[in-house]
Design a protein around this nucleic acid. Structure first.
Lengths: 122, 122
DNA sequence: ACAATACATTCCTATATGGGAATATGTCAA
DNA sequence: TTGACATATTCCCATATAGGAATGTATTGT
């Protein structure tokens, strides 16, 4: 089996950077396809295709206004992502607390973050 | 160009449901590959491959303990996702506020949510 | 009706999977 | 060293893109 369809859920849909850009832009206010194309400097067919994906997973809604299609974000659909990430919030708060306690106890220099990536092979 | 690599960033990595399951499981505590395999009922090679992806984007860290590899989540790497979704938080709060105000003003029946998906073609 | 405007869809292609099977690698125990 | 145990990696393949080019469709103005 290959990777899941981008239209399978919001997680897959926002995995694409261009689609996040579009959502960020739409976060400000409702926009037409043409405005998105002009502002984000993407090809029109590309924008239409990304919007189609976002529409399929419910991340945006549309409304026709004459010849233009006005898109707006449907924040509700982003909420599951927010809630999933929130389940890990306590961890970085713990880490912050530990850093804070450490700083308060020792009041000395902080060595910076531990590199997060690959630590095997050694 | 095809879709971006799952190892390109955390957004792509967590787009896969199995990987989110693994992260959820690891959120409870550090676990060995074998424990993940047994608990989530996935094939061992599959788990190893998913862990590799998670490791590449820094979503987990590893530590060898004898013959076992102990994995744990690196919540810091999830933080960017949390923060991105947070930029839309005000929207659903607005919606909730509007619902609340509406309910307070009219104190009548609420028709339920507007379907989020496809509303074109009609 | 017809041209222009604004989008959407289709076709084609290189690329990146994710799962299953088989195999390789690393570590410990006897 | 040898065997067993725990993981990781490689191969193969069906599938799902994302971008570019070309084309189809809907709506408005004259």
């Amino acid at each position: 089996m290959a990777r899941a369809a981008t239209t399978s859920d919001a997680f897959n849909a926002v995995a694409e950077p261009r689609r996040r850009e579009i959502l960020n832009y739409l976060a400000l206010q409702e926009r037409s396809v043409g405005e998105i194309v002009a502002t984000l400097e993407m090809e029109q067919p590309s924008v239409s295709k990304h919007l189609r994906v976002l529409l399929d997973v419910g991340l945006v809604n549309v409304r026709r206004e004459g010849r233009r299609m006005m898109y707006r974000v449907n924040a509700e659909a982003i909420r599951p992502l927010h809630e999933w990430t929130s389940t890990f919030e306590r961890f970085w708060q713990h880490q912050l607390n530990r850093v804070k306690e450490h700083a308060e106890r020792k009041s000395s220099s902080w060595q910076g973050a531990i590199p997060a990536a690959r630590q095997d092979k050694f």
